[in-house]
Design a binder for these strands. Structure first.
Lengths: 211, 211
DNA sequence: TAGATTGTTAATCGATTAACAATC
DNA sequence: TAGATTGTTAATCGATTAACAATC
């Protein structure tokens, strides 16, 4: 189904479309034109139509797009109607915050296990998910299908862990450490959430605004 | 100092340069060529030279770049040697995780206050930072210079709060909510950390890898 | 039908890559 | 000096924007 060669720019915009469509959907709007969307989102109508037409023709000439239909199409493209299994590695502050804060139920990911090295937490559950010892992670991955690993562990062990989980068969990594993960790069999919990169970019723009 | 019209693509790569330079710096490497950096980072040497030359000529023909010098230049560009003051709004799980987890000491941001509405936490300190009631946020901003606000509060109050802090004089927002912040857009700088966008992109690539 | 808006091709713009003279 | 590698201009490539015939 997936067409080849769709640029990352396009993919990265899809979640924003979802966000806006959800917002006008909850406001009861049934249909929307690319011109109307472009006004709200600060893109050009042309770009929106180009983006969508990478995946198919979802609109009707002279009418526009059915909001709920379009939303459903994009959700499908993003795999939001598929279930991916995931494990979380590192149940420290950040890991626990993610577990209790992030609505995995609204995502396409099902969290099936947590791993940590702290004896005080191994064997318990966090937000209803069982916590196992990190030593057992390969065994677990080989026993259950695990699509993705969420890395919320200290940076200095991130690379080694990325290598371990990908060697054991995990396909994707959601990387919350401020590390590059080059050793895991062999064909695995890495999505980085680099807090400090983002903060440095904010810092740059603050500087710029002062000039 | 800031030259105009430097593309976001370039700015967004700068933190990565910092990361790699730090890594080879701590390995004791003193000099590096654009070719060597390009191999490590998976960019072209041309692109690296183009990126850097947006800001000045930091290298020596026939020699390359002094790692520590180049690192220092980029840090300067990113405002990492300036101090920005920041407040954090919303001391729930995510806010507290950020407070205890993220090394603000390594950043150019100095966190001077936390705001929340929970009486159980107002008046105390979290990670050494005093917590005030959100009602007093305008008063505080007007009394102290506040460059940026970190939003780690529930999504449904994010827009209203963004508007409040920018009206009170805050210039930048580090937005951890999964909300767009259109109402704060009038001239303020917004850096988004949209967890679910990132996860949806990971989901897309996982789908793609299965095709 | 007339008006609106799509899907899609063509034109433009900007970003990346290649090339090379300058120079350490 | 000869070799290496920069800074920078030119060429290429890709992404965005504009235009418009097709069509609901």
């Amino acid at each position: 189904m997936a067409k080849v060669n769709i640029s990352d720019n396009v993919i990265n915009r899809l979640p924003r479309y979802i966000r806006y469509l959800d917002s006008i959907l909850s406001a009861g709007v049934e249909r929307v034109s690319s011109a109307e969307l472009s006004r709200r989102m600060g893109l050009t109508a042309s770009q929106i139509r180009q983006d969508l037409n990478c995946f198919g023709a979802f609109g009707q000439p002279g009418y526009g797009y059915k909001v709920s239909e379009l939303r459903q199409h994009i959700a499908e493209i993003l795999g939001m109607n598929t279930t991916h299994t995931a494990i979380l590695v590192g149940a420290g502050n950040l890991g626990q915050a993610l577990l209790s804060n992030f609505r995995f139920g609204n995502s396409s990911f099902s969290l099936i296990a947590v791993f940590d090295v702290d004896p005080a937490i191994v064997g318990k559950t966090v937000s209803g998910i069982p916590v196992y010892h990190s030593d057992d992670i390969e065994k677990f991955i080989q026993g259950s299908k695990v699509d993705a690993a969420i890395l919320t562990l200290p940076g200095y062990v991130a690379n080694a862990m990325a290598e371990r989980v990908t060697n054991a068969g995990v396909k994707g990594i959601w990387n919350f450490t401020n590390e590059e993960l080059p050793s895991a790069a062999k064909g695995s999919i890495i999505e980085n959430v680099h807090f400090s990169d983002s903060l440095q970019v904010l810092s740059y723009h603050l500087m710029e605004s002062k000039n």
